[in-house]
């Protein structure tokens, strides 16, 4: 009985302390994330709802920061060096349907890159609460 308890304790302690890289690996690590973000930008520029926000922006810079941000959100070994979400979206009138259009563009890109559904939803779960700092209309 005590043995089982110790074994369980061991399993719990290792699982909570060791960094869980499984979602990051599901995304194909840095190269996989880069492809997802590249395709995301293609989708954003193709959609008339999101295009105005990105067509004149520094796309290379945005993509670089998005890769960092997504990597951090899925517990990958990265550091986000970009602005806060609030600061980055200040001055842009973004409404709820435009926010969702971006989410859909990301879902399409993840589907195209065959990211497993559970890994997709783990990233979306981290990004969704940012609506408070992004939707400002």
């Amino acid at each position: 009985m005590l043995k089982i308890a110790f074994t369980l304790l061991f399993i719990f302690s290792t699982s909570s302390f060791a960094a869980d890289l499984s979602t990051y690996q599901d995304f194909g690590e840095k190269p996989g994330l880069t492809k997802v973000v590249d395709d995301l930008m293609v989708n954003l520029l193709a959609n008339e709802k999101t295009r105005p926000f990105f067509e004149k922006a520094d796309q290379v810079h945005i993509k670089e920061k998005l890769v960092e941000q997504f990597c951090v959100q899925i517990d990958g070994p990265c550091t986000y060096t970009g602005q806060t979400m609030k600061k980055a979206h200040k001055g842009h009138d973004i409404d709820t349907s435009e926010f969702y259009a971006l989410v859909e563009a990301l879902q399409e890109s993840m589907n195209k890159n065959k990211i497993p559904q559970r890994a997709q939803n783990k990233l979306l779960a981290k990004l969704a609460p940012m609506h408070k700092d992004i939707i400002n209309k």
């Binding site: 979306l124 779960a125 981290k126 969704a128 609460p129 609506h131």
Partner: peptide, 9 residues
């Protein structure tokens, strides 16, 4: 509440 977006709560 927002059952879809408020994933941090």
């Amino acid at each position: 509440g927002d059952g879809v977006l408020d994933q941090d709560s």
